[in-house]
Nucleic acid binder design. Structure first.
Length: 467
RNA sequence: GGCACCAUAGCCAAGCGGUAAGGCAGAGGUCUGCAAAACCUUCAUCCCCAGUUCGAUUCUGGGUGGUGCCUCCA
């Protein structure tokens, strides 16, 4: 039995898809105006885990993740410039080039992190007509109105506005810093469509002249286009609860007259050194940054998996180091089980059960990882290895691949990669050891070390590996 | 000013009514001429105060301390 936490009800709910055996889900994707940072990636890892758990439960998936390549303004509440345009100006390229470049980079990051690409990853600019159609209908129904700079949604027509974030609009307005746009009927009204100034590069014809879609309408539209009126899960980062997702709810429910989404799921933020991570503070890292510092993207994935998705995750390099070591040891354990001569142990059934329970309890991956570690402490056997591979279908740590790779690296190091001079030094050291000249032996070991190799004594003799 | 979340060992982190999973670090040990690696063992009574209960880290109320959102960000 799979349980998922629904932001809308603030409760874990037993999951039951609308359509038997199939899950439809929409996940807010990236705005491709820059490289995604590790905070972004945490959310996409969460989406990936969710997808894997659903599959683990036997569901077929119909997942959508949008690529926002227009209309996301500098403020989520529709003020400032379009991010794509700003980036284009800064990099002196067209917004389309920017979008293409960063979209590609985004998909590469997904691959590095072993994140499965959802079934559909539509670009906003490919669905402008559908968005216009959506806005036209809202205006017809009396939910939208025109101002000098665009079409806005009138939230006073949607009394349930705020139900996801549980905000009371009047209280909010009292103390908040809401930008005053005198043409808006209510401070929280948001743009469905923006009229484009002449110099705006991305613009399309519409019943209201040349313009471009609002960011929120993109998600509402794409969700409908691919998944229909109603779908099972909508996910995103917690920052989207108060504006973006409230607006999506308002738009879609205004249009179809009923809730579209059954379960709203949100992943918590990542912090850096106990403070918030944000582009404006400049304390963001990309996956490439981590790679340049010598980490494997899987180290980062492991790091994320160690904390539940609804808890803030404090990123530190100390923490990432711990993850790196832990993952390395995990793989070593795995190899030992893989090479074991004994086949199995029926008591393992309990681990399968515990693992599934953990994972199905609102994606309790930290607990599931603990189950895996405990299983690895069992006597070495193929059965444990098989269990680990089973677990990895959900964890996505590429365990099988890593084990293979680690083993073949070892073989290569043993067979050829050791240069003659290093072998000579090792032989000399062996002689020195036989002669009990330990000072010389240690000195030779140092020399080997300095040349970038590690010499280890084993009962079968010494072993050299590249550092 | 409003809203929300959180508080478990040196660090990260599960558990959420019956006396604390797991990882990193540390300590002790096995192995070694010494190391390294590996392996084994070990390491907490859960922010404070009241209450409910036979029993609370787990529920309720009140504190204190963090963090986030209402500007930008997943």
């Amino acid at each position: 039995m799979l349980k998922l936490y629904n932001t809308l009800t603030r409760q874990k709910e037993v999951f039951k898809p609308i359509k038997e055996g199939e899950v439809s889900m929409y996940s807010c994707g990236p705005t491709v105006y820059n490289f995604a940072h590790i905070g972004n990636m945490r959310t996409f890892i969460f989406v990936d885990i969710l997808r894997r758990v659903l599959k683990h439960n036997g569901y077929r998936l119909k997942g959508v993740m949008n690529i926002t390549d227009v209309g996301h303004l500098e403020s989520d509440s529709d003020t400032g410039e379009d991010k794509m345009e700003t980036a284009a100006k800064k990099e002196n390229r067209s917004p389309y080039e920017i979008a293409e470049f960063y979209t590609k980079a985004f998909f590469e990051d997904l691959k590095k992190l072993n994140i499965e690409k959802p079934e559909y990853t539509p670009k906003a600019t490919d669905y402008i007509n559908e968005m216009i159609d959506f806005v036209v209908k809202l205006v017809e129904k009396g939910y939208g109105y025109e101002t000098s700079d665009g079409i806005y949604f009138d939230i006073s027509k949607f009394p349930e506005y705020g139900k996801l974030s549980k905000i009371n609009l009047e209280d909010q307005i009292a103390g908040a810093r809401v930008e005053v746009n005198p043409e808006k009927r209510n401070p929280y009204d948001f743009a469905l469509w923006k009229k484009a100034p002449k110099e705006h590069i991305m613009q399309w014809p519409s019943p209201w002249g040349m313009g471009y879609p609002g960011w929120h309408i993109e998600c509402s539209t794409l969700g409908r286009v691919f998944l229909g009126d109603e779908f099972d899960i909508h996910s995103g980062g917690v920052d989207h609860i108060p504006i973006h997702h409230e607006n999506e709810i308002a738009q879609t429910e205004a249009l179809i007259g009923k809730p579209a989404v059954k379960i709203w799921m949100h992943s918590e933020f990542m912090m850096v050194d106990n403070g918030k991570m944000s582009k404006s503070l400049g304390n963001t890292y990309t996956i490439s940054d981590l790679e340049n510092r010598g980490y494997d993207p899987m180290d980062f994935r492991y790091f994320c998996l160690n904390t539940h998705y609804r808890k803030k995750l404090n990123f530190t390099f100390e923490g990432l180091d711990a993850a790196e070591i832990a993952r390395k040891r995990l793989i070593e354990q795995l190899i030992a089980h893989k090479n074991a001569s004994t086949a199995g142990n029926p008591a393992l059934k309990e681990y399968y059960q515990k693992f599934d329970e953990a994972v199905n309890d609102d994606l309790n991956i930290p607990l599931a990882l603990g189950v895996l570690w405990t299983a690895l402490k069992e006597p070495k056997s193929r059965a444990v290895y098989d269990f680990a591979i089973y677990a990895d279908q959900v964890l996505g740590l590429r365990l099988e691949q890593s084990a293979q790779q680690a083993q073949s690296e070892e073989t290569i190091a043993e067979e050829d990669a050791i240069p003659e001079d290093i072998k000579n030094l090792a032989e000399q050291r062996l002689e020195a050891k036989k002669a009990k000249n330990y000072a010389l032996a240690d000195e030779l070991r140092n020399q080997i070390n300095q040349k970038g190799y590690l010499i280890i004594d084993t009962p079968q003799g010494y072993k050299i590996t590249k550092k």
